[in-house]
Design a binder for these strands. Structure first.
Lengths: 244, 244
DNA sequence: CGAAAAGTTGATATTCTTCAAGATGCGTGG
DNA sequence: CCACGCATCTTGAAGAATATCAACTTTTCG
């Protein structure tokens, strides 16, 4: 465990590396875990899936951080459609399709496992896990819609606040502190994920710091005022004086 | 059939009412049709589903137009998450959930049928249509993601152009002319769907007319230059001189 | 240590919303 | 059928939000 470039969360904050996840609190993962192949490790900034790859199964993230992007013309800025944290499943949008949706790259060293199947019939006949998969898919539709609609309809400070809260909740679910975490992705990658300029991300983080909402140093984030941050995340253009 | 407020497409353009759809070219609908209850008619501007309704099945749209919205505080502008055209399925985002996602309202008089089931197990045991449903769900994830990401990352003229092209394609699939169609939704509703101000929709439509791309009169749209419109739909902020 | 990448900050430009006024079309009742 | 009133649509002008461009600082990594 110590000789590899161990993925870590809070290593800087706690001054020690944390162990690789072997279980999560995500129900879907629990129900799918027994089907999966052994773990493998992916070094940081490594391509897991290219846009040309044929669909051959779902990947479960056990540790680390990955991103899925859209292919765009050279010179154009990348669009990041997903960040995958421990407990997330890669490839849900590609079931019943021939190819994966877009390239998936590790941002930091990650460990994954593969639930291998070429097509959905193969998987269903072999495993009889229709309901589990349906539930995961259905839930995925709903949560992703909610997230995208939020992003779409909110100004950039609310987007960023909401993003930070979402990350906070994810870490909380994984058993870590919701108010102190490390995000391996760069400002540019956060910007691409939220569809804004990286300068805007910088400016808003600075503003949040000035307002005493959080403290951010490179990849380490401390949420100082979760309530205040949530208030900003909930505000919208039609009612700037949101009081909830 | 003649005594009801028959839904129609192109009635103005062709000067005669078209018959209610009884079949579509959508594969998914075909495979699900035999399970559905008889058709029923919903008058225009009628609530089909409220935010409090418990999930009790999927609705198939046979004719007309409906919208699904997000609940917001009074005084705030409505957010429209879906338009449902003939061949579309209402409720995919609510499978495996207790309640529907948001209120669904008919914009014009519509005819629908209900595939009734309280929970997914009930449906699957009774019907053994796992694969069909999985395919529909999976496809739905992918197409909706693609649409939302497009909307999110593009300036408003590209959003509107893309919206019109999508509508055009839908009518084409349904066997109608792709370049002359009637959209029953108001400018405000289009704006809410694309997350912009209704004034912006007006302005961009005017601009498109001046540029000779289309002709729009109230609810009737004629696409005069599909190629030009597609070029605008594909452009993005990083490469305004897109050539494809 | 030095070069390249990433992040921050300021000035400017653009896009889009908001506010406001007017125009157009639609339904209703005379 | 026409006139009135309301809702929708269009257009203009001002303002806010955000992107872009540019300079500079900080960090990372060979």
């Amino acid at each position: 465990m110590d000789d590899v470039d161990t993925p870590y969360i809070f290593s800087k904050l706690k001054n020690k590396k944390t162990e690789i996840f072997t279980s999560t609190k995500i129900n879907e993962i629990k129900s799918l875990r027994d089907l999966s192949q052994p773990l493998f490790t992916l070094r940081k900034k490594t391509l897991l899936i290219t846009e040309r790859d044929k669909f051959n199964g779902l990947y479960l993230v056990h540790s680390g951080l990955l991103k899925q992007s859209h292919i765009r013309k050279p010179g154009e800025s990348e669009i990041i459609t997903h960040f995958f944290l421990p407990g997330d499943i890669i490839g849900l949008d590609s079931i019943c399709e021939h190819h994966y949706c877009g390239p998936v790259t590790s941002i930091e060293t990650s460990s994954l496992s593969l639930i291998k199947f070429r097509n959905i019939d193969e998987y269903l006949i072999a495993q009889e896990n229709h309901n589990k998969l349906l539930r995961v898919l259905s839930r995925s539709i709903r949560t992703e819609h909610a997230r995208l609609w939020r992003t779409l309809s909110q100004p950039s400070d609310a987007r960023l606040a909401y993003f930070l809260i979402t990350m906070s909740n994810k870490f909380s679910e994984l058993g870590y502190s919701p108010n102190a975490f490390r995000l391996a992705m760069s400002r540019q990658e956060i910007a691409n994920y939220l569809c804004m300029a990286s300068e805007t991300v910088s400016r808003i983080i600075s503003r949040f710091e000035n307002e005493g909402l959080l403290s951010a140093n490179r990849h380490d984030y401390f949420i100082l005022d979760p309530i205040g941050l949530a208030t900003i995340a909930k505000k919208n253009r039609s009612s700037p004086n949101f009081s909830g």
